[in-house]
């Protein structure tokens, strides 16, 4: 998966989680710090992301805290080859 495709998958999971997204989601966006997700939403977001990708993201364990989109893109690209 390319970075663009990974960004699209992340944006889709975000939309599935919160319904609609105000403004653009870029690799500089921090989904938690920018107020798009709270801790409960982050659970749903990760579920939707893994579900959409059809694969578990092993790099994201129960203590994972980095919700910068750029970091998530790195993980998705690595996990999907």
């Amino acid at each position: 998966m390319t970075r663009e495709e990974a960004l699209a998958a992340i944006t889709k999971a975000l939309t599935e989680t919160v319904g609609s997204v105000d403004g653009d989601v870029t690799e500089d966006t921090d989904l938690v710090a920018d107020g798009m997700l709270d801790s409960l939403d982050s659970m749903t977001f990760l579920f939707e992301l893994e579900n959409g990708l059809g694969t578990k993201l092993e790099a994201i364990d129960e203590t994972y805290e980095d919700f910068r989109v750029g970091a998530l893109v790195d993980i998705v690209v690595q996990a999907t080859g």
């Binding site: 801790s39 659970m43 749903t44 579920f47 893994e50 129960e62 203590t63 994972y64």
Partner: peptide
């Protein structure tokens, strides 16, 4: 499906499936 630790608490997300006459479809519970 998902487990996270936030603010000193374990948060979990599970899928719930129900069987029985007229059972509702699968959903997520936290």
């Amino acid at each position: 499906e998902v487990e996270r630790i936030a603010h000193g608490r374990l948060q979990t997300l599970s899928l719930v499936d129900t069987t029985g006459d007229g059972a509702p479809p699968r959903y997520q519970i936290c």
